[in-house]
Design a protein around this nucleic acid. Structure first.
Lengths: 247, 247
DNA sequence: TATGACCATATGTCCTGACAAAGGTTGACA
DNA sequence: TGTCAACCTTTGTCAGGACATATGGTCATA
């Protein structure tokens, strides 16, 4: 068997970052920046543990992190190898909608409306009482000068203090992050239909062109409601890319 | 603190199924069938280990499986609780496209064409040489009597023996499974556009209604190409539901 | 009464050690 | 020369223990 390529790793035991994560990050970097190529054999667990002065479970856990991300493939009896690049999984939730800033077109968001309202549908999607007063936001997203999407969002009262200015300056998810919120899981539903007159106007849709729609419910790790969204995208300019995996 | 509900678990040490998985399955069942309700406190790790005569790492691994699935929430210093039902994650890759057999309408698939061809676009998506001869399939999916989707798929030569009859009888993914293949990860791209004349005819689209399109590349766990698909759905009848999570 | 120090509890991290199971390789034997 | 069994390598599973750290509550003190 070909001798595996050794990756340079430095472990800082005084750091508060767990050892397995330090290791995982450095191995991940080695794969993504090409120091390790798809198909390359990977140093085996015991040898790696020995070399770095770590226990095998710690090394195993680091490797498992990369396997979960799709960067490595383990085969019992054979060893671990770097996965085909095509199966490297994408990460963020944001990449689903936060989008093609390609061609140097700078994304920009305009807040069309911003206020409190009662919306039974949005409230029930968020598992809140139907008469809950929600923060309702309507935004128009541009790529350069071209309008791209109309985005309606409803937020629970806890985030009622998010201001119009903050939204335009930093975006919705940045505003939530600033409040220590971290949307962990979301249920999304994607469909297509013909635009409403208002959508035709906002998105400057001419002729017979559909919109791609996405509704979303987002929750934090404890299951508390974070956001309900109902977005419409110009289908001409927009596709949704995602990775799916069945483990 | 409320005394946690004890779940009845039986562990079979003679079974080839790993102990942590036996435990995870039984705990998972307890959550999904409602024996444990969202918000309920969960028996702590050490107590559970003691009660079942298992080591803590084994119990921890079982619990981790459920946390990964979104069924449980762990909070350091507090304990583990059953998650809000909204964050219970969906599982299969199949549920993404294999679809609404709701309202008792039985799904049915008709094979429109089936043969070998060279298609550079499909081949490159599958990481194969552009002149590779692929098995090309076109199918029409019905829900009851209503046409729902036109599905074009290309498969690498290894699966060139999949017959027309097999496809109609069992479906594409079942045919692949029968060959021991297991699609693990796929890159999907979703968009919307107006239908082509052929699509209008096949899907019986009248007036101004768009189609929802999905292209997909699927690979097995070793990174070998499994399938490239290009599907068009009647937007009136079809939505794509998915769970996204950022961990 | 309010506040801070301490403590109990539970999960998080890390270690050592052992054996099992699944591949591939090698070598003995027919 | 061909075949199969034994062996080696590597990952998979499991145990048991030690200490760290986050969280909430309690109790003593100002």
């Amino acid at each position: 068997m070909a001798t595996p390529q050794l990756v340079d790793v430095s472990i800082d035991r005084t750091s508060p970052v767990p050892l397995y994560h330090q290791l995982a990050e450095q191995l991940c970097a080695a794969v993504t920046d090409g120091r390790l190529q798809p198909g390359d054999p990977f140093e085996n667990e015991v040898a790696l543990a020995q070399r770095l002065g770590l226990s095998r479970p710690t090394v195993r856990r680091a490797i498992q992190e990369l396997v979960d991300k799709g960067l490595l493939v383990r085969r019992r009896g054979l060893g671990t190898t770097v996965a085909n690049r095509k199966v490297h999984r994408r990460v963020a939730l944001s990449s689903l909608h936060d989008d093609l800033d390609r061609e140097g077109r700078t994304p920009r968001t305009e807040v069309l409306s911003h206020g409190h309202e009662v919306n039974a549908e949005a409230a029930s999607a968020l598992d809140l009482p139907p008469d809950t007063e929600l923060l309702a936001i309507t935004r128009l997203r541009y790529a350069g000068d071209a309008p791209l999407a109309v985005m309606r969002n409803w937020l629970p009262p806890a985030y009622g203090d998010i201001s119009r200015d903050e939204l335009e300056a930093t975006g919705l998810y940045a505003a939530l992050r600033a409040r220590g919120v971290h949307a962990v899981v979301a249920h999304q539903s994607i469909a297509a239909r013909m635009p409403t007159p208002a959508e035709r106007r906002h998105l400057r849709i001419r002729g017979s062109q559909p919109v791609l729609t996405m509704t979303r419910m987002a929750f934090d790790s404890a299951g508390a409601a974070v956001e309900y969204g109902d977005h419409s995208y110009r289908a001409e300019d927009y596709t949704i890319d995602l990775m799916v995996d069945e483990r």
